[in-house]
């Protein structure tokens, strides 16, 4: 019985680790997809990355549900169950956002002026980096709560940089000689990308509280 219990625990640990891997992988795929969009538009390479993120999101949903069910059925970590579920749902939300931004690019194919493209690539990198730092913080929450701060401050750093950059992009868009509809369209994409880093920051704030709860 005890062996069975520890086997199930090990499997649960692996599932949570895999969810975190999925977030990290989707951040990288997102970054690469935006890069390829900026250089080639909706190309085969872009679509491959989009499909990759879609598959990662589906796998994440499945794993998240399995972890949630096991935690409730076996009444695991009663004191931190709510926190863990909120965290996993928020991480799933981040993968979901990567997917939806890529879908917007795929379906609406915005025409991004040459001069703004490096900014969009940079913005995607900052959002991806914020998400990856969040993944490291989440790993620390599960295993080594003392080191969580080492990663959380990076999330805030990237989010702040992304905020500065998106303001710069907005200003440049509206200084350009483009029809208003195009300007609004371009702004929409910049805001969708920066929104991911905002999400990562919100989760990081929650993680700070969860970590305090775990240490006392």
């Amino acid at each position: 019985m005890a062996v069975q219990l520890f086997k199930r625990t090990k499997q649960l640990e692996l599932k949570v680790d895999e969810i975190l891997d999925l977030v990290s992988q989707s951040a990288m795929a997102f970054d690469q997809a935006i890069d390829s969009y900026m250089s080639e538009g909706v190309s085969e390479r872009f679509n491959q990355r989009l499909e990759q993120v879609v598959a990662l999101e589906a796998r994440g949903d499945k794993l998240g549900l399995a972890v949630e069910l096991q935690m409730y059925n076996e009444t695991l970590i009663p004191d931190a169950r709510g926190d863990v579920l909120t965290l996993l749902e928020a991480l799933d939300g981040i993968i979901d956002s990567f997917k939806s931004v890529l879908f917007y690019f795929s379906t609406e194919a915005p025409e991004i002026p040459e001069s703004l493209r490096p900014y969009y690539s940079e913005l995607a990198k900052l959002s991806g980096a914020a998400a990856e730092s969040l993944v490291l913080a989440a790993r620390a929450f599960f295993r080594d709560v003392q080191t969580i701060k080492d990663h959380l401050h990076k999330v805030h750093y990237y989010e702040k940089d992304a905020d500065v950059l998106v303001t710069k992009i907005r200003r440049e868009i509206f200084e350009m000689d483009l029809p208003l509809a195009n300007k609004i369209h371009l702004r929409f994409f910049a805001e969708r990308i920066v929104w991911i880093s905002d999400m990562a920051e919100d989760v990081a704030d929650k993680l700070t509280i969860y970590a305090i709860k775990r240490t006392i």
Binding site: A2, F6, V16, L76, I77, R143, D144, Q146
Partner: peptide
């Protein structure tokens, strides 16, 4: 803190 146990592992050990 020293053992750096996973939250689920710690839960299983505490339960046991």
């Amino acid at each position: 803190t020293w053992a750096k146990l996973h939250i689920f592992r710690l839960d299983a050990y505490t339960r046991g």
